[in-house]
Amino acid sequence: MTWVVDNLDLIGRLTVEHLRQSALPILLGLLLSIPLGWLAFRFRLTRGLMLTVVGLLYTIPSLALFALLPPLLGISFLSEINLVIALTIYAVAIMTRFVADALASVEPHVRQAADAVGYGAWRRFWQVDLPLAGPVVLAGLRVTAVSTISLCTVGILIGIDNLGYLFTNGYQRQIVAEILAGVVAVVVIALVIDRLLVVLGRALMPWAGKGA
């Protein structure tokens, strides 16, 4: 405990860094997965392709992905952009499946009713399909946010400071409290963000009920 009290500054600074690094991948994951998820939902051909690709990407262990991206994209191995892109890839991999499932969860008769009253395809997607898919998309976003925040710590292995710093630093200096503080901090901010998303979801989708 004394270690935590003595190092509140450091924990605070790393938490802010951590949130900053996680935010972009989560947001990008959501934005990119909507068109990709739609492709996976809409066409049989693209469905198999998309789901296989995201499945494979998700399979790649994080440390290996950090190593693969630099030569492929011409970026530096020990760089924040490497971390952010890797986390975005995982976020997209998780979210695409959720978005495809979410769109499939919209009942066909609702979709037909929207067609029947004269929605165009584009309008129907934004005003009927996507809002009704919302609860499942939100469930996916929660999984993505929590995973991303947790996974972000691995960035320390490629020299990016965030809450993961407490793990390696604590390990080298043999301070159990430091590592424990890092683990607890990550879990707490992940769960706080998770709750925030639930609250946000209720505000945006009042029709979805408590289950969402």
Binding site: V146, S150, L151, V154, L163, G164, F167, V176, G182, V186
Partner: peptide, 19 residues
Amino acid sequence: SGAARAVPSFGLVLLLVLV
């Protein structure tokens, strides 16, 4: 199973090795 996703695996390994 929900909360477990939030636990950073790298941190858990280092923590248990020290403990």
